[in-house]
Amino acid sequence: MQRRRFFALSAAATVALALGIDETPVRGRLSMSDIDRVTANIGRLDSHFFSIGGGPLLTVCTAYIDRLRDALGGCVYGTRVEKAIHHSISSLYASAGWAAHDGGDPTQAALLHTASLQSALLAGDASASARAWSNLALQARMEGRHREAVQITRAALDNRRARQDPHISALLHARLAIGQARTTDRTGAARSLLAAEQAYDRVNPAASEPSWLAFLSPAELSGLAAITHQALGQYDRAEASTAQALELLPPSMRRSHAYYSVQLAELQLAQGNRDQAVATVTTLDASSLDSRRIADRLAAVRRTLTA
């Protein structure tokens, strides 16, 4: 355990050094050029997560948050910079929450997502607030509080700016569909899946998007639809949608590829297709991933296959 902790801390220190976290000033004047560097670093952290999972990101994100809080307390800046710092802190709390979730610590994940919402409110940013609400809804769903998850997601969709942003609207509607499926609202789930597709159809491919939304693609929407179908007991449709997600995923999204590969194997087992599940697991290389959550699910599938 001590050795594993040492390597985790070493990896976090390496990532922090590569990003230049200590370059953010904590004295003097803080400008938008400093914020631009912070935003670029957060983008790199997001790419790291999409590639291999949470790994050392929890430690790195919380260290970065501490640095930005020191900047808030020790620097001189205008209102625009102040709000931008709070937005960055909200983003880092959200990333830290996902890292904790990946590491199998739902209690810490919930606290971090709540902190993300608080910073989003300080930033006065509706998109950041919608992200935080979405993460809190997902956390509620993971803990089995499905009606609460539906209520939280609906509250996020009540925000006009969130509804008008096609990326965020598509994500919220897709996650709402899962919550509705798990509360046996079949009609509502179908409507929400359709709304997610319609929202994504409004996405302008030429428009820039926040780095945290880079995972949201037709592949991800197919994967989320699969989770909805699975919750409704429609395993054949869930399997087809999961397979479609895997076909559409780009090579860079290794974490998502592993996640949906495990989901496909689980669905194949649920339908008694043992040989297909074996083939799915055999082709999955999760050695480079750093996600306890995915590793635990994969291990459970392998135990079932060898039982």
Rank of each mutant, 00 (worst) to 15 (best):
A226M: 10
A156F: 06
L267D: 05
A300M: 00
F50G: 12
A307I: 01
H87V: 03
S134N: 04
F50M: 14
L138H: 01
A286K: 04
L72N: 00
I294Q: 14
I152H: 07
S241G: 05
D158A: 11
G233T: 13
A18N: 01
A219V: 09
G28Y: 07
A156S: 13
R175H: 11
G54C: 08
Q180W: 02
S291Q: 12
N135K: 05
G54Q: 02
R3F: 03
S88T: 08
D102S: 08
S33Y: 02
R69D: 14
Q118L: 14
L267A: 04
S222I: 11
S33A: 15
Q244C: 00
A8T: 10
Q180I: 02
L171V: 15
A99F: 01
G104E: 15
L136K: 06
R145L: 13
R69K: 09
F7I: 13
T183R: 09
I42E: 06
H146I: 06
H229P: 03
G28A: 00
S256R: 07
R254A: 04
I65A: 06
R202E: 12
D102L: 07
S256N: 13
D105L: 08
A243G: 15
A295F: 06
R255S: 10
I178Q: 14
P166H: 10
L213K: 07
T280H: 03
V15C: 00
T153E: 11
D185S: 04
T183V: 13
A126W: 09
S88M: 08
A94N: 02
R237A: 14
R67D: 12
A177H: 11
E239W: 01
A155E: 14
H86Y: 03
I294C: 05
Q108A: 10
R67S: 06
S116L: 07
G272M: 07
G144Y: 14
R147W: 00
R163G: 07
A16H: 05
A94Y: 11
H113I: 02
R292G: 08
L213C: 10
L264M: 07
A109H: 08
P210A: 07
R274I: 10
S91L: 05
A123L: 10
R147L: 11
T153A: 14
A162Q: 03
A170P: 03
P56F: 04
R160W: 04
T306S: 15
D296I: 12
R69N: 00
R80Q: 13
T107I: 12
G78M: 08
A123T: 01
L157F: 04
H101M: 13
R160D: 12
K83L: 12
I65L: 05
I89W: 01
A270H: 11
V278Q: 15
D36Q: 15
A130K: 03
I65T: 12
H101K: 13
T187S: 11
V281S: 10
H167V: 06
L194W: 05
N41A: 03
G53H: 05
A94E: 02
R80S: 13
Q118W: 02
A207D: 10
L172E: 09
V301I: 08
C61Q: 12
S51W: 01
D66A: 15
S256A: 15
Q276R: 14
S211P: 03
L112F: 08
Q276V: 02
E209C: 04
L72S: 00
D290A: 05
H48S: 03
A100Q: 05
R293N: 01
A279D: 15
R37A: 14
T282H: 12
N273P: 00
L289K: 05
G20N: 09
A177D: 07
E197G: 10
R293P: 04
D285T: 01
